[in-house]
Computed example of a mutant assay.
Amino acid sequence: MPVGSISVIVPCFNGLPDLDVQLAALAAQDYHGDFEVIISDNGSTDGLREHLEQLESPLDLRWIDSSDVRGTPHARNAGIEAARGDFLVFTDQDDAVYPNWLTALARAAETYDAVGGPIEVRTLNSPEVATWRVVPAPDDRFETTYLPYAHGNNFGMWRHVVDHVGMFDEGFLGGGEDTDMSWRIQEAGLTLGHVPDAMVAYRLRTTARAAFEQGVGYGAAACDVLRKHRPYGAELPSVRAMLLFGYGLVIRNPLLPKSLSPLPTGMWALSAGTLRGTVSRRLRHLLDERRLSRRAQGR
C-alpha cells in the first residue's frame, strides 16, 4: 500500500534541550512527501510549549497535551488520537533520526503492516559511554526468547494496525510497551518488517547509577511483558537462567583486573539493574500466583 499522509509522534517529558537535536534531524529528512510532527507533552515543566511556540522550524509541528495520564505509552496513544496521518511513526525526544529515516520506513511500509529499524550509540554519546551498550547490527532485528520486536524510538505502523490490535498498553510505565505492541501485532497475524536503512542515533544514560536504574526498569518490564504473553507461548525466565546471568556479572565485575575482561562500568551497571528488576518482579509474580491459587482452593 503506498504511503500517503504520515504523522511522526514524539512523546516528550522535560526533553529540552535534547529535543531540539531531534527536531533538527526531523527537519533534515530527505522524504519528498508531507508529514506532520506531533510533540505529545506528558507534563513537562521545562517550558516546552513556550519553547515550541517561539521555535523557527520548517516542520509541520504540533504540540498536544497528554499530561492527564503519566507515562510514555499514554503520550504515544494521545499522539495517535491526534494524528492526521494514515501511517503512524514513533521516535523519542532525546535521539536523532538519520536523514533517510522516514523515506526508508515509508518505503518498507508499502510491504508490511508495521516496521522498525536499527539504532546506533556512537553519534550522541561519548566514546566511553558508547561502550556501555551492545546493539544489533543494522541488518539484524531485535530478538528475544519469544518474538522479535521494534524499538520504540524507531517504529511505524499503519492506522489499521491500531484498529486491529489496540493502542499501546498504558500499564507498562517502565518500558516494554514497544515489545508488547510488536508481539501483539505478530500474534494477530500481521507483519512486522525490519528496515536496516532506517537508522536512529540512540542517546544513552551517562552515569552508572542512571544505567542501573534504567536496567531495573528494563528487567521488571521484560517480566511483565513475558507474563502477559505467556498464554501465547512466551516463557518467563527460569531460576537457572537468572543464576547464570548473576554468575556472569560476578566474574565480569569492572572492579576486577583488566586481564579478566571485565565489562565496562555502565554496561555492568545496566546488566546488574536488569537482573535486580527481573528477580524482584519474578518473585512478585510467583507470590501473586500463589495467592490466586490459595483463593481458588478456598483457603
Rank of each mutant, 00 (worst) to 15 (best):
P2T: 12
V3A: 08
C12Q: 10
C12I: 09
C12G: 07
F13Y: 11
L16F: 13
D20K: 13
L23M: 11
A27V: 13
A28Q: 03
Q29S: 12
D30C: 13
V37L: 07
D46Y: 15
L52F: 08
Q54R: 11
S57K: 11
L61C: 04
W63T: 07
I64Y: 09
I64M: 14
R70Y: 15
P73W: 02
A75C: 06
R76F: 08
N77G: 02
L88A: 08
F90R: 09
A96D: 04
A96R: 04
V97W: 00
Y98W: 14
P99G: 14
A104K: 03
A106R: 12
R107A: 15
A108E: 13
A108M: 14
E110C: 14
D113Y: 01
V115A: 13
G116C: 02
P118W: 01
S126N: 01
N153L: 09
D163M: 10
G171E: 14
W183V: 01
L190A: 01
R203N: 15
T206C: 12
F212N: 01
Q214I: 09
Y218G: 06
A220W: 05
H229M: 03
Y232H: 15
G233W: 07
S238A: 15
L244Y: 11
L249F: 06
L255D: 02
L256C: 12
S259C: 11
L260H: 09
L260G: 04
S261E: 13
S261H: 14
L263P: 07
T265R: 14
A269G: 03
S271W: 06
T274L: 03
G277V: 02
T278V: 00
R281K: 12
R282G: 13
L283C: 05
R284I: 08
A296M: 15
Q297D: 12
G298K: 01
